[in-house]
Simulated assay, not measured.
Amino acid sequence: MGTPLGDFIRTKRDSIQPDSLGLPDRGRRRSPGLRRSDLAARAGVSVEYLTRIEQGRDRNPSVAVVNALADALSLDPSERNHLRYLTKISGGACSAHTRLAPPRRDVRPAVLETLRLLEPGIAVVTNRLGDVLAHTSGFEMVMGGIGLLDAEEPNLTRFVFLHPGARTFFADWDEVADERAFDLWLAPSIENSEWLAAELAPVAGPDFTRRLHRHVVPRRGVLRLNHPLGYQLRLLRETLDLSSDAQQLVVLLPADERTAEDIGRLRGPSGRLRAVP
Rank of each mutant, 00 (worst) to 15 (best):
D71N: 08
R234E: 10
L149D: 09
R52S: 10
R105W: 15
D178K: 04
S78G: 13
R104K: 14
L149R: 08
R234V: 03
E199I: 12
V160E: 03
F161P: 04
P154R: 04
P120F: 11
S90D: 10
S137F: 10
E140I: 09
F182H: 04
P109H: 02
P109F: 01
V65T: 11
T11N: 07
S270Y: 13
E113T: 02
V251Y: 01
G56K: 12
V217W: 00
P228F: 11
T136V: 07
R80Y: 12
T114V: 04
L235A: 06
R210I: 00
A134C: 11
R99Y: 11
P218I: 00
T114C: 06
N192Y: 15
P164Q: 05
R237E: 08
A151M: 13
P120S: 13
A72R: 05
S37M: 15
M1S: 14
L249K: 07
M1W: 08
D172N: 14
V222Y: 02
P4E: 03
D25K: 05
N192L: 11
F8T: 00
R30W: 03
E257H: 09
L69C: 07
A246Q: 14
L186H: 07
R52D: 10
T114Q: 07
P103N: 07
L196R: 11
A41Q: 15
A70V: 09
R167T: 06
E261S: 09
G92Y: 11
R167I: 05
L235V: 12
L212S: 00
S31E: 05
L21G: 04
V217D: 00
P4L: 03
H163I: 10
L69T: 08
R52F: 15
E191R: 15
D25L: 07
T98V: 15
G27K: 03
R52K: 13
P188N: 08
L129G: 10
F169H: 04
E179T: 02
S189P: 12
